[in-house]
Design a protein around this nucleic acid. Structure first.
Lengths: 242, 242
DNA sequence: GCCGATTTGTCCGTATGTATC
DNA sequence: CGATACATACGGACAAATCGG
């Protein structure tokens, strides 16, 4: 729970933007004004604005001001954004989540697994396969690999509820960085068996390596989504070239 | 061309990480050390490190140091990352690009286009449809909408080379933010006509709204990729909850 | 367990540069 | 040209986490 001042300002401005207290395309108050409003230094205000910029909420313009460029999004499909557990995503998308464990096993990484997951050969791993349903419809098939030594006491029961709740709540692990790759792959027999695919022959696939606050990878996941319920969102800023 | 000191340091460290001058999982020199090396203030060093953190290159650990968590990626498919023109992406993926113009027309936004693109009804637009090939293989189908008043003098000839070169070079437009949505959609007749899809019945689709440095949207693009040559990469950091 | 040294995190005040109006 | 606004940079202070003795 960050009580940092810049984070308070960040959240306050974010809410004012989301609730359209500031209109789309409107200028925010100047940094100088915000400094007086919040009773802080200019650096602190700038830090909050930097966060909103990274989120694609505002765009600072040299010499002119900071423009609100936030537009609310339509939430039809299942939208993926930052690092979230399935449970959190479901709540944000206002769906009722359900998880069914298909497999749960302890394995040791071999060369093949090393290439795929990034875990060194010989690493003790927990492997699980989970079918995720939203509002009763099976939509997502997850293949997880957790480092066993970093996730002690992880049982199928926990896996059916929320692994992240357990890791963050019980074990005190801080989840920090996730490197993700998004591809489109052919359906497998397992996909077909558990997910109603109509005539789709592809799945939207997110593979991710997740690191804790020590920079140690504790998870590798492949998450296979039914195409028509998948949506991934992102804001990019152009890096000045050369 | 940014000559900012923090950017110099950012690039220098980035290169040292990419060339494995610092090994994977190794600690970078402390901020204090870097301050002396580069002859700058601590804030400036910290700003460079913040950039590397956002890129997923390093992970700072309170009280311990900054760890290198960069791993080079295998470049088999066509990898998409930040905001890039097709030409730039092709160069980064070491492929020879070719563009064929399928359509080029001036249109006026109606209600339907407004909903899709975010451009207000009545806005004068340039619409173009382009087939992109890499190493001779047709792989990507682009549908672009540009605001006509912001992109004067844009011809089919320019569209065949690089629109971004023209906008940034000739018109002096600064491209800054892009909001992207990634979905998987069924193939259309146009897809089938121009792209060798084997038996795939889906395409990887990136839709994006791009803004200039005034926060004005000047482009809407839908970019349809052949699944087996598509790869999207991303680094996410977990926001502390509540 | 305590203490001090090291390292990163937060915040402040100020100065100067640059773009806009 | 001056006023305003954001961008960069510096230096200092204190807090919080880590580590070694």
């Amino acid at each position: 729970m960050p009580k940092a001042k810049y984070d308070q300002i960040y959240r306050d401005l974010k809410e004012k933007i989301e609730t359209e207290y500031y209109a789309y395309q409107e200028m925010l108050p100047s940094e100088h004004t915000l400094v007086e409003e919040y009773g802080c230094s200019r650096n602190t205000v700038r830090r909050a604005i930097a966060g909103l910029t990274a989120d694609g909420y505002v765009q600072p313009m040299h010499g002119k001001g900071v423009r609100n460029i936030f537009q609310p999004i339509e939430q039809t499909a299942f939208t993926v954004g930052g690092i979230e557990s399935f449970k959190e995503s479901a709540a944000r998308n206002r769906k009722v989540p359900f998880t069914r464990i298909l497999q749960f096993a302890e394995i040791t990484a071999d060369k093949k697994i090393e290439r795929k997951t990034g875990f060194r050969e010989g690493t003790e791993l927990l492997y699980m396969q989970r079918l995720r349903s939203l509002d009763g419809k099976p939509l997502i098939l997850d293949h997880n690999y957790f480092r066993k030594d970093l996730t002690p006491g992880l049982t199928p029961e926990i896996a059916a509820r929320s692994v992240y709740d357990y890791l963050e709540g019980e074990l005190g692990i801080t989840i920090s960085t996730s490197k993700r790759t998004l591809t489109v792959e052919r359906v497998t027999q397992v996909d077909e068996k558990y997910i109603e695919l109509k005539d789709y022959n592809c799945m939207a696939v997110i593979t991710s390596q997740t690191f804790d606050d020590n920079g140690i990878q504790f998870e590798y996941t492949q998450s296979r989504h039914r195409p028509d319920y998948f949506r991934f969102q992102d804001v990019a800023t152009r890096h000045r070239m050369k």
